[in-house]
Design a protein around this nucleic acid. Sequence first.
DNA 1: TAGATTGTTAATCGATTAACAATC
DNA 2: TAGATTGTTAATCGATTAACAATC
Lengths: 218, 218
Amino acid sequence: MSEADPSTPKERRLAPPTISRLSEYLIILEELGESGREVVSSRDLAALYGNNASQVRQDLCCLGHTGRVGQGYRVRELERMIRATLGIDTIKKMVLVGCGRLGTTLAVHVPMAHYGMELVGAFDVSPQMIGTRLGPVRVQSAQNIRDFCAKHGVELAVLTVPKTAAQDVSDALVAGGVRGILNYTRVRLRVPAGVAVKNRQIVCSFLQLFHATTSQPA
Amino acid sequence: MSEADPSTPKERRLAPPTISRLSEYLIILEELGESGREVVSSRDLAALYGNNASQVRQDLCCLGHTGRVGQGYRVRELERMIRATLGIDTIKKMVLVGCGRLGTTLAVHVPMAHYGMELVGAFDVSPQMIGTRLGPVRVQSAQNIRDFCAKHGVELAVLTVPKTAAQDVSDALVAGGVRGILNYTRVRLRVPAGVAVKNRQIVCSFLQLFHATTSQPA
DNA sequence: TAGATTGTTAATCGATTAACAATC
DNA sequence: TAGATTGTTAATCGATTAACAATC
């Protein structure tokens, strides 16, 4: 461990655009794999993603060598490499805070278990909600957030609470040791360095679509 | 109309990263406005967004002149300019296809009417679903998609159907004249030039968060 | 006035695209 | 072998950051 592992390929940090493309490549590869496809070229993958072969190869060469010159990439192997690169071959515990409509939908809709995430807890303040089942877990009081996360070693959280509660919940999560928050609220959270926040205001996707159909008529 | 309008400021196309930031600035400005704030500097806005003042000014200077040198930007005025730039001061008609859990959640959760979008139709194949109310509309059979969109001049669509139906629905939307599709399915849609597709696979946000907490420990 | 802050140009940085030798 | 396609370097392109004159 004291020296750089020679088997590790590049180990330079991946560019942010590359990371977001990798997760989309993964989805495409899973679809290809399910349809029985065994090999895919950078050209094919680019056609599916909507970019170009050069970019695909550039993105993929950070993963360690998986392609066969003259042949392309083996779908399953590439899938595994991307999973490893994203880290999702290791399971991380996740909690959901805010079990309203959006929160419950995300919990049900996203196949977390398939992507290295284990939903171990769900929290809400509503007495009607507390105690009900949500997928694999039972909803508990938001007062437990900090202790629960600390006790179970929770690393990730999804935040779908009303904006008035967002910062307090965030503080509780961070105090409990959570290191990544997927923030669906309108609030810009203040978190200490070392905690990752991804803001995903759904309405922004709608606005971007709107603009895309506004700017150039064709 | 034959000459360039001299009142139009730059009118060079906005850079894609700028567009996505603009929609987030808008949310921040709305919050500021609601809290009574009247003026904001590029420095303040950058602190809230999490970038730097230079980038904020660079982004904002495409909108036409709204800032006051030495003073900052008026919150309400800036809000209006961003709305105009995104185009959301003009109403566009939108339909939802796929009224399952995710689709209905989006329809309820996103304040479309507040952002220039009018939900005029919702479609599903399920007989139980057809005829039920969804926000301002009644769910109708997916068979009507094409004719309905053409008849009402629908421009935008949200797609939350099972993947097996995605391409067919997309074709129907396009045939009906829809020019922008917000695609929440795993399928990469094939659409003709001039139709904008924004792929928003929610799971990808989870994967990106995962990676962010994997790469550097702090 | 002096301090603050914009608008905008120039410099830097990073990401995408092109090109091609290596090779299956 | 010839054709295809990777891995990777170099060239181009675009986005971010720095700097500063203009000015409220």
